[in-house]
Amino acid sequence: MSLFLQYLAAGIATGSTFALVATGFVVIYRVTGVINFAQGVFAVLGGFLAYSLLHAGVAHGLAEGLAVAVTAAIGLAFGLVALGRRGTPPLASLIVTLGLAIFSYAVVITIWGDNPISYEGLSGLLAVGGVSMQRQYVLIVAAAVATFLALALFFGRTYLGMALTACSSDQRAARLMGIDVWRMGLLAFAVGGALGGLAGVLLTPLQPVEFDSDVGIAVNGFAAAIFGGLVRPATAFAGGLVLGVAEAMVAGYFRSSYETAIALAVMLGLMLWQASRRGPTEE
C-alpha cells in the first residue's frame, strides 16, 4: 500500500508538470488557434537556464524565477516569429513552431552541449500520512496549484486577462471592441513560455533534461491538453495528473520503458469514453 502511495505521489508531481505544459498549450491555442509544437522547448530551456544560473552562483528560487522570466521572453519571441504578420493562418504558424523547436536543438547543443543536465531540487523527504515523499514533489504540486489559481484569477478577474479570454471566445467581437488580437496572441505565447519554463525548472531535479527532451514533455503535455479539448484549462490540468499517475504506476509495477505508451493508451481510452458520453458532434 505504501508503495502504491509513493508511486501516486511521484505521479501527481510529474503529472503537475505535464499539467503546466498542457495549460501552456491551451492558453496559446485558445487565443491564437495555433498548436505550439515548441511548447516542450520552453521546459527544456527553463531547465538549462536554471542549471546555468545555479552554476553561476545564483541562489535557488531566484535562479528558477529568472529562468521562468527568460522563457516567458523566449515565448514572446517565438510568438513574434510564429504569428508573423497579422492574418497569418494558424496552420502556417503551427509549422513555424515546429521549425523553432528543431532550431532550438541547435541552440541548446551550441550553448550547453548534448549531455543531459540536472540539479538539486528541494532535498530531503517529507512524511505525509505514513508515506515518505521527496520535498521536491510537494514543491512541484504546490507551485502548479498556485500557478493554476493565479491563472484563473488573471483570466477571470483582471481586465487584461478578460481581454485574452474575449479573444479566445470570439475574435471578431474582440476586434470590434478594439482589442488587438495579434498582440494578445503574443501575450499568450509569453504566458505559454512561462508555464513551460516553470514545468522545466520543477521537473529537471527529478528527470535530467537534454536538448531533445522537449518531445517527451510536449507529447505528455499535449495529451493532457487534448483531454480538455485544447480549450479547457481545468480539464487539461486534470488530464496532466491522470497521465502522470498512470505513468508512475506503469513504471512502478511494470516497466519504465512502457510508461509513456501505456499512459497514452489510458489517455486515449479516457478520451474515447468522453466522446461516447458526448455522443456524435453536430458537424
Partner: peptide, 24 residues
Amino acid sequence: QVPEGRRLFPEMTVEDNLRLGAWR
C-alpha cells in the same frame, strides 16, 4: 458597432461583457 448576431462573450458575465466594451 453592435454586431449582427450580438456576438457576446457567452461564458463571461453581463458586467464583464460591458466592461470589455470600454477597452478603447
